[in-house]
């Protein structure tokens, strides 16, 4: 059995729980559906004039927000493995050292695809219609997934540093909420105070959302925000992947 099979087996392990207990996925699915519906019907009128007009604007934003939230579970799962000794069991097996992490991130990608699919279906039921092509939609999904994999490394770091799984969630969501909301994911940038606009425009959540909007609604630039999001993803991965691995090894060397 080679390293790829072992990684797949470890990814299977994270996914099989979801299959048996769909409520597990509820963590990632009920919440974004709730957000989508709430935003649409509560804020839609105020922000875009009517819920119908807001849907195309907010759906990409909710997809991006949910992508970030799902990555928290990479850190949560890793921390659970570390604190419960499961990670040690894996390390005492003849498998590559990176396989447990790779398995988690791979499983996370599958969960991300499921969540995006779910949001698109709910969006469709609420009246969303794709203004571009299936190809554009696929590019949007790949872009979001690429960013997800890069951002997972931030959560790996949180997972290694946190005392227990509950703290991963606490810290993860607490940090992600402001980052997501101080962006153009739900509200047009122009409506915000000027001093905030600079930050919002540089926020990768804004950039990714704008690229996704362009790819789904054909109403804005795609290349510029997409490239900027990819640059962010590359930067995040370049900093956090080595840092996370270094901190993880330090934690393991502590005993």
């Amino acid at each position: 059995m080679n390293a790829l099979d072992q990684t797949l087996a470890l990814a299977w392990r994270s996914l099989v729980q979801v299959r048996r207990n769909p409520w597990e996925l509820g963590d990632y699915s009920i919440q974004p559906i709730l957000f989508l519906v709430l935003f649409l019907f509560v804020f839609g009128g105020a922000i875009a004039g009517s819920p119908d007009d807001y849907l195309a604007f907010v759906l990409p934003g909710v997809i991006v927000m949910n992508m970030l939230f799902v990555t928290v579970y990479v850190g949560h799962g890793l921390n659970t493995d570390l604190t419960r000794g499961v990670f040690d069991r894996f390390r005492a097996l003849p498998i590559p050292r990176w396989a447990p992490l790779a398995g988690r991130i791979l499983a996370d990608v599958v969960k991300q695809v499921l969540c995006i699919g779910l949001l698109l279906i709910v969006g469709y039921l609420l009246g969303f219609r794709l203004a571009t092509s299936f190809g554009h939609l696929l590019v949007m999904v790949l872009l979001v997934l690429t960013f997800a994999v890069a951002f997972s490394w931030v959560m790996v770091l949180v997972g290694v540093l946190a005392r227990d799984p509950e703290h991963v969630q606490l810290f993860g969501f607490t940090a992600l909420f402001p980052v997501t909301f101080v962006s153009s994911a739900f509200v047009p940038v122009e409506t915000m105070p000027e001093w905030l606009q600079g930050f919002v425009q540089a926020n990768p959540v804004s950039l990714l959302t704008e690229a996704a909007r362009g790819l789904m609604n054909a109403d804005g630039a795609v290349a510029a925000p997409a490239l900027a999001s990819l640059a962010w993803a590359a930067g995040i991965a370049a900093v956090f992947a080595p840092l996370s691995v270094w901190v993880l090894n330090r934690r393991l060397a502590r005993g």
Partner: peptide, 14 residues
């Protein structure tokens, strides 16, 4: 080798 730690190091969800 086989290793059994002090705490049950198995996946609780599986």
């Amino acid at each position: 080798i086989g290793l059994t730690g002090q705490y049950a190091s198995v996946d609780e969800k599986l």
